Simulated scan of single mutants.
Amino acid sequence: MSRYQTLDYAERDGVAWVTLDRPEVHNAFDGRMMREIHECWRMLRENDDVRAVVLTGAGDKAFCTGIDRTAAGVGEGGPSEVGRRGSTPLHLDDPGDLLPPKTAGQLWKPVIAAVNGMACGGAFYLLGEVEFIIAAEHATFFDPHTTFGMAAVFEPMLMLQRMPLGEVMRMTLMGNAERLSAQRAHQIGLVQEVVPAAELHEAAHRVAAAIAAQPPLAVQTSVRAVWYAQELGHRQALDVAKTLVQLGTDQESLAEGQRRFASGRRDEWRLR
């Protein structure tokens, strides 16, 4: 029996598959799912059998559509599992406290998103902190906050890390009136590969397994370095890099890499 009620979890070839499993509400998250996602990220930090993660949604209609507005209290704007705690706005339980793999989980194993349909609103808490995105051809991306009278705040801030300013602004301000296609998302760099829906799982597993086959210390240090470069000033990042190079150099893995190079054996590669 799965340890989770709202997620499906499986491991194969050093890769963990985390599937948002509430297809009846387009994999929208309620309080339980938020807590289980957070628990899953934290668990994965300690699971040395897993070297890469694929995050996807159940079914073929949606990856995730953000907060479940049908959950108790959400649709009416009242108190709920997702939202403010207490009588003042100073104590806010925001999904950003539990969902993003880096911010909430401090997880530096690479996470790849396989987007299998609609991704909107609160889905960007997750997509904003994955390493890269592979999308099915029918996937769409949009942010409906303003249409429903809500300010879009955390989501566009997260997506500004991986989309041009004008694209973030347009998606934020257009609300429900417009959606980004998988092809357009690929053009602007939000998505790194677009595949037919029937090939999405195979494509995601192929790259995740290739990453998982590499020395984990080198991979995880590289992930951390790139995020530091994204978040810090240029000179600050270069200063941190000196420490990361030393921390991320495992002598055994380095020696194996040198033996591999000297042998003349080269991996088969695929042109993307």
Results as ranks from 00 to 15, higher is better:
G257I: 05
Q187S: 10
N176L: 11
G248D: 03
H186P: 04
A136S: 12
G248N: 07
V18C: 07
L126I: 06
A203G: 06
A255I: 13
P216G: 09
G117W: 00
G189L: 06
A218L: 11
R42P: 02
M43V: 12
A123F: 01
R32Q: 14
H201C: 13
T146E: 12
V54R: 02
D48K: 10
M163R: 03
L98C: 07
A262W: 11
L98N: 03
I133L: 03
A28W: 01
D93C: 13
D267W: 09
H91I: 14
F148A: 09
A114I: 03
L90I: 12
D250S: 08
T56C: 08
A213Y: 04
Y228D: 15
A182D: 04
A177Y: 08
A262C: 12
V74P: 01
Q220S: 09
S253K: 05
A237N: 07
A136Y: 00
P110D: 06
V223P: 02
A58S: 14
R179I: 05
Y4A: 08
Q192K: 11
V18Q: 03
A177N: 11
G189F: 04
E137S: 09
I67H: 02
A10P: 05
E256G: 12
A237D: 04
M34H: 03
M33G: 02
A241Q: 10
G31P: 01
T103F: 07
G14P: 00
V219Y: 00
A262Y: 09
M159R: 02
A229D: 09
E202A: 15
T6M: 07
A218V: 10
M150T: 11
T56V: 05
I133Q: 00
C120F: 02
A72Q: 14
R51A: 08
R272D: 14
L7C: 04
R170C: 08
Y9D: 06
G122V: 03
L244R: 05
V194C: 01
E39W: 08
E36C: 05
Q161T: 14
V168G: 00
G121V: 06
Q192P: 06
M169A: 15
I37F: 03
R179P: 01
T249C: 11
L165Q: 12
L160G: 11
P164Q: 07
L165H: 12
Q220C: 12
R45S: 07
G149V: 04
H234D: 14
D30Q: 07
E129C: 03
V115K: 00
A262V: 12
G57M: 02
K61N: 13
F124T: 02
